[in-house]
């Protein structure tokens, strides 16, 4: 209200700062992700899934010695969170993460809000970092919800004291939770890789749907490629290759070989996706 300067009076801080505090920007981004109704719905759906699986398996008594982890869940609740992760990470989790990544850059561009962010100004590299953190948060939230719901359902509905590993040994509850945490962390890295690639795709387009289709489509195609024996040489570079190895945390001792190669692969994808997103954003006309 009092202006005495000879030029446009601006708050003093603006002379020292060229960009808003990073924490506030990230906080605003996270709040934005969490205010979107469909993201919340997705989390809710994810929470319901382990309950559904656990209940059905408990009621029906399992698939009767069928394949894989389903049989292992019966009366062995701590397997449920890992099974839930394995089931969701193939399609559901990537879908949700691609959705958030799509909103992050493509959606903002379509809304015209990307311009606003760049004009604020949020630096282009910083913008990608902020968006990546938003996606990462959704990854952690989504996996956290699945695991939490899985553990609770496992303890309350499926039951079981500790964890009977796939190798037939019995682990106490504490160690079992450690194994579940390991699976969750591993899955988070895999999903972060999906998120990074989705973000890269998101930076190239204004159509959110395209990002979803490309990301999920790529995963489906990877699945097909994996199943073709003559393309075995391609397997090591496909992000989906070791995804079923998440159940290796349930072996005793843990089967680490595939888990580690999966981590390395996901790390490469994260680097690749993030770099591509930065490269695209740095030169993009908006």
């Amino acid at each position: 209200m009092t202006g005495t300067a000879s030029r446009v009076e601006l708050p003093s801080g603006i002379r020292q700062h060229h960009s808003a505090p990073f924490g506030r920007v990230v906080g605003s981004e996270l709040g934005w992700v969490l205010r979107r109704p469909r993201n919340l719905l997705a989390l809710l759906g994810l929470a319901a899934l382990p309950v559904l699986i656990g209940t059905v398996i408990t009621i029906t008594g399992g698939p009767g010695g069928g394949s894989g982890l389903f049989a292992a869940v019966v009366g062995n609740g701590m397997v449920l969170p890992v099974l839930s992760l394995m089931l969701t990470q193939n399609l559901l989790l990537p879908l949700i993460i691609a959705m958030v990544a799509a909103d992050g850059l493509a959606g903002e561009a379509a809304n015209g809000t990307l311009r606003g962010l760049l004009l604020a100004p949020v630096g282009r590299v910083r913008l990608v970092v902020v968006k990546a953190l938003g996606v990462l948060m959704m990854v952690l939230l989504a996996i956290g919800v699945v695991v939490l719901s899985g553990v609770l359902t496992g303890l309350l509905i499926v039951g079981g004291d500790g964890l009977v590993t796939l190798s037939g040994t019995t682990l106490p509850l504490g160690e079992a939770l450690g194994r579940v945490a390991l699976a969750a962390g591993w899955c988070a890295v895999q999903m972060a890789a999906v998120g990074a690639v989705a973000l890269a795709i998101s930076s190239t387009t204004e159509h959110s749907l395209l990002v979803l289709i490309a990301t999920v489509g790529a995963l489906v195609v990877f699945g097909v490629l994996e199943a073709i024996p003559s393309l075995d040489w391609l397997k090591p570079v496909l992000i989906t290759t070791d995804w079923y190895s998440i159940s290796d945390v349930l072996s005793d001792p843990i089967r680490t070989t595939d888990l580690l190669s999966g981590l390395w692969r996901a790390g490469c994808y994260i680097l690749l996706g993030f770099s591509a997103a930065v490269a695209r954003m740095a030169t993009k006309d908006t």
């Binding site: 590299v125 090591p236 570079v237 190669s261 490469c268 690749l272 930065v278 490269a279």
Partner: peptide
Amino acid sequence: MRRRNIALTASAGIAAGALGLTSLA
């Protein structure tokens, strides 16, 4: 930072990621 430098650095990142994947194969 100039945009081209950023793009260049990022391209190096892409190359490193691709190389890492290839090393698996």
